Amino acid sequence: MRELDALGPRLRAARRLRGLTLDELGDRAGVSPSTISRLESGKRQANLELLLPLSRHLGVRIDDLLSPVDADPRVRRPSIRRHGHVIAPLTAETAPMQTYKITYPPVERVPAPRVHDGYEWLYVLSGRLLLVLDETRTELEPGEAAEFDTRVPHSMSALGGAPAEVISIFSDAGMRVHRYADPDEG
């Protein structure tokens, strides 16, 4: 099974990404460092009794450690239409950060600011984008980027009567608000 072959390297990468040694993860998860080392090197068979505490203390899902190894790296997810926006996913649904190409339609009035958990990074590809953070209005041109905490009241809209295309990267919490389409939208 190719999924099990990828488990060790994924486990090691998750541990190293968090800056943990084998001993530190072992202490937190109640698993011996030598067992973790053997799991990471593929010399030990994984089971739920081992994976549950390790994944919990690494902050990853077991599915992330065991996801199938896909020979085709292309992302094939349908675009979402929401309030006139076109939201095209650019990353796999299981990716740790979600990236989207969002097309903002021209509007007559600036949308009301919203607040939600998360963090967002964006880059304007084409058109002009108005970013409102609290009371501050910033006009972004193609080639400009911005980042902000989405707990700050914010809204975005196209300027100048033409759509604005933006690449947006969301933290895990920040993406949930943007990826689910309203049932009434088409």
Rank of each mutant, 00 (worst) to 15 (best):
P68W: 05
P113G: 12
S32L: 01
V110S: 11
V86D: 06
H178Y: 09
G186Q: 12
H154P: 05
L131T: 08
S37V: 10
R77S: 14
Y119V: 08
P113Q: 09
E24W: 00
G127L: 01
R2T: 14
G174N: 04
V124Q: 04
V75W: 04
A146H: 07
Y104K: 04
M175F: 12
G19F: 03
V124G: 06
E144W: 07
D27Y: 07
G84Y: 09
R12E: 05
G26R: 02
A14I: 10
S67V: 14
G186K: 13
H57R: 01
D184Q: 12
Y180R: 10
G8C: 11
L4H: 13
G161I: 14
R128V: 05
A13S: 14
D63V: 14
P113N: 14
M175C: 15
Y104F: 15
L125T: 08
L51F: 12
D172N: 10
G42R: 03
E3V: 07
E141Q: 15
G84V: 10
D70Y: 11
D182E: 14
E108H: 14
L25D: 00
G143L: 00
I87P: 07
K43A: 13
P53W: 02
G161S: 11
R81D: 02
S55K: 00
E120C: 09
S157N: 01
E139Q: 03
A162E: 10
E139N: 03
S157P: 00
L130G: 11
L4P: 00
V166L: 01
H154Y: 10
A146F: 06
L122Q: 03
E3N: 14
M175Y: 09
L4Q: 11
P33Q: 03
S79I: 07
L20K: 06
K43Y: 02
D184Y: 12
R74S: 15
G84F: 08
P163E: 05
P96W: 00
A181V: 12
P89V: 14
